[in-house]
């Protein structure tokens, strides 16, 4: 889309862009700035935009190992737990999502569309009401308060959608390549691994990042399933922290920045692939 260079058009667009940028970025920026303010400054009027006397106190307080609460809210531990769960469930989702995605896009079998639609709709069954039954289930399986249990649960939540993204993307890859390989005697699985997957990389990255973000920020199920301080995830820590320091937004801002940092790094490096994945037909017909 190359619009004609009319000044009025560009001014209008720029204003629209500014409005959108403000809407999207202001809240994050405001919280981020707050993390460098003192508690006194946050409580004083009139409100200040830039920190008057920038300080990193709020950040150092997070890692104050002399305090007892830092054992409960042990950030390095919380972050590594979240990382473990998010990364391993992402891997599970990728492997099984690809298998299923391949089947859904390449093989005609009875009930295919019905099953795919059913999987998609199942993503809705996740409200507050499922907390207790899920807890009971995990308990029966002996998987409550276990990172393995949380990983499996998140994988189950993430699989339908990942399958769908991957299936949609595989449809875009010409079938002829495989056909000729199969003529030469290659098996389905060989075709999948050697021919289709390399072409589907952007879609796989998209699905992976999508799932990673969801797993990283999930709170409700983690909060009820995880008990010991050794197995808690970062969002549980964040919620406790927010509850403790509700009106000290410098500390809340610092904790939030800390939690968001890893995921932003992932995005910083993955952004190009992510957009490419979307472009490559991950969600295109």
């Amino acid at each position: 889309m190359n619009p004609q260079p009319r000044p009025l058009y560009w001014i209008g667009l720029s204003i629209f862009g500014l409005v959108i940028a403000t809407y999207v970025l202001f809240p994050i920026f405001w919280l981020f700035l707050a993390s460098f303010k003192t508690t006194g400054e946050l409580a004083s009027l009139p409100l200040t935009f830039w920190p008057v006397a920038p300080t990193i106190e709020a950040y150092t307080a997070l890692f104050d190992t002399t305090s007892q609460s830092s054992q409960i809210l042990n950030w390095p531990r919380l972050i590594s737990n979240s990382f473990l769960v998010s990364v391993s469930s992402t891997l599970i989702v990728l492997v099984f999502g690809t298998l299923a995605g391949y089947a859904f896009s390449r093989i005609q079998f009875p009930g295919r569309d019905l099953i795919l639609g059913g999987l998609l709709i199942s993503r809705m069954f996740q409200g507050a009401a499922l907390l207790l039954p899920t807890y009971r289930l995990m308990n029966n399986l002996g998987l409550q308060d276990s990172l393995l249990g949380l990983t499996l649960l998140y994988s189950a939540f993430g699989l339908p959608f990942a399958t769908w993204i991957i299936a949609s993307s595989l449809r875009e890859i010409p079938f002829e390549l495989e056909e000729s390989a199969m003529m030469d005697g290659a098996s389905r699985l060989q075709c999948m691994v050697k021919i289709v997957l390399p072409l589907a990389t952007p879609a796989l990255i998209t699905a992976a990042m999508w799932h990673f973000v969801g797993a990283w920020s999930e709170f409700a199920f983690a909060s009820i399933l995880m008990e010991s301080s050794d197995s808690k995830t970062v969002t549980i820590g964040l919620a406790s922290f927010v509850e403790l320091f509700t009106i000290e937004f410098n500390r809340v801002g610092a904790a939030a920045s800390l939690v968001a940092m890893p995921i932003m790094l992932v995005f910083f490096f993955g952004q190009r692939y992510f957009t490419r994945g979307l472009l490559a037909g991950a969600v295109k017909g």
Partner: peptide, 20 residues
């Protein structure tokens, strides 16, 4: 185990239902 105060009742209910 320390929990977020907000989940008090749901946590206790869940523990009760599973005898845990």
């Amino acid at each position: 185990s320390f929990f977020n105060g907000q989940i008090r009742r749901q946590k206790i209910l869940a523990g009760f239902q599973t005898r845990k």
